[in-house]
Design a protein around this nucleic acid. Structure first.
Lengths: 153, 153
DNA sequence: GTATAATGAAAGTCAGAGAAAGTCAGATGT
DNA sequence: ACATCTGACTTTCTCTGACTTTCATTATAC
């Protein structure tokens, strides 16, 4: 929507695509371009370009400082998947699942319909009959299992 | 007669028709337009745009937040799917799921990868933590939910 | 000439304000 | 009785500004 954060996020992601997954920006410059306070840039980065969304961010302060954003290179989807699978713990909230699934689509590991299927399977609605205290546990097992099934194909 | 909820319901459904089954609204804006409290919108949505009436509702809070309503696509692959969905009972063994999934692939309703995702999600392995007596029940809910999600896009 | 101090130009942090939507119990209407 | 409506309160997300930290460059001291 008209959220500044979303606009900046898209701007940076487009930039990343153009630059093959690695950009360097100046915080103040970007803030001026989008007519906001510099710390807004930090907000966008810390909410949208986190480590577990597949980004690596570095920065340098002082004169001529800058922020560099790199996207993990996942040319081998299988490796990435295995990495994720092992990183998934034993409990996953519906919300955390969403984050994972969105990443997978961002990285073209799964298609839109596949994402809907996964969301549908993992939703609280589908799992309503599973006792609360087991639900996040079941979700973790399901997500792992589903991701596994993709590495085989 | 002419209850506000009905008026808002009709308004939203007209909007859905105009927008090919998918709208985004702002709760407060709508409340102002109909001169009611914002929570009235929640009431309308929760009573009229439920999942089993064929709608998907999502929302985002915070500045620039919104509510999005999508209608299942009942005409395309929909009729057949809806038929299938209603044919699925309340209990499904892993084996029965297999049969369904194989049928879906045979009739080109789902692709190969989609089938493996579904098998993975519905397998006994993924659902091992779900108590035995609930498992077939959960499976039915999951399969229905997954098939539903396909009718949207 | 080298070492240190001062200056300025970045980026970082964090708490708080603001802007939505969600919840729920109770009042009201039919 | 049941559906509808309201308002107070909660939660989540976004945005801002004051203040801090870090770095590079330039000026000063020896």
């Amino acid at each position: 929507m008209a959220r500044l954060s979303d606009i900046i996020e898209i701007f940076l992601k487009d930039m990343l695509n153009d630059m093959h997954g690695s950009v360097e920006i100046q915080r103040n410059e970007l803030a001026i371009r989008f007519n906001c306070v510099p710390s807004q840039i930090n907000y966008v980065i810390s909410t949208r370009f986190t480590n577990d969304k597949g980004y690596y961010v570095e920065s340098r302060r002082g004169g001529g400082g800058c922020i560099s954003i790199r996207r993990f290179n996942i040319d081998c989807a299988g490796d990435y998947l295995m990495h994720i699978i092992s990183a998934i713990g034993d409990n996953l909230s519906q919300h955390t699942c969403e984050v994972f699934i969105n990443n997978f689509t961002d990285y073209d590991i799964i298609a839109g319909r596949e994402a809907s299927l996964m969301r549908a399977a993992l939703s609280d609605k589908a799992l309503v009959e599973v006792p609360m205290e087991k639900r996040d546990n079941v979700r973790a097992a399901m997500l792992k299992n589903m991701m596994m099934s993709l590495t085989v194909l």
